[in-house]
């Protein structure tokens, strides 16, 4: 992998990390009912992705696995906490947050959950690849 490819992988990885943190922010903001009924709190995801991409363009992620783990842990804790650790609630929480955040209100919760799973998986894979490149 040459320097240019590594740079773009860094941007992608950083953008996906931004997705993870934006998702957590969207989940938490949706708990503020007054705000949730007035604005699309899911937009925090797009804001997170934007910030992530911006950071990725300007800086190299030094510890991709550690940051990825923190973001996943934050997602897991907030999902389990808000959804009372019930699988049915977790599926609804992730689904609606994604479909509102990605401005796709007409997709089903199942499709939204699939998008969420793929993006999360992508962020994990990009973190692993980035870590290997740094180590190598």
């Amino acid at each position: 992998m040459n320097t240019k490819q590594r740079k773009w992988l860094n941007v992608l990885g950083s953008g996906l990390l931004g997705f993870n943190f934006g998702f957590v922010a969207a989940l938490l903001l949706a708990q503020w009912t007054w705000l949730e009924l007035r604005v699309n709190t899911g937009l925090a995801i797009l804001v997170g992705v934007g910030i992530g991409l911006g950071i990725g363009l300007l800086r190299t992620i030094k510890r991709p696995l550690a940051v990825e783990s923190i973001s996943l842990l934050a997602m897991l804790i907030s999902l389990l906490g808000i959804g009372d650790a019930q699988i049915s609630s977790l599926k609804i929480l992730t689904g609606y947050t994604i479909r509102e955040g990605l401005l796709m209100p007409d997709i089903s919760l199942q499709v939204a959950n699939l998008i969420f799973s793929l993006l999360t998986l992508g962020s994990i894979l990009s973190a692993i690849v980035l870590k290997r490149k740094i180590s190598g």
Binding site: R63, L65, E68, S69, I87, K91, T94, N113, L114, T120
Partner: peptide
Amino acid sequence: TLKMSKVLLSAVLSVGIIASLSGCGSNE
């Protein structure tokens, strides 16, 4: 830190895959 990260990643990945698989089938 690296070991912890790997354990956490494995756990989250497993939960995610199980959740998404069960989600794909339900109510569709």
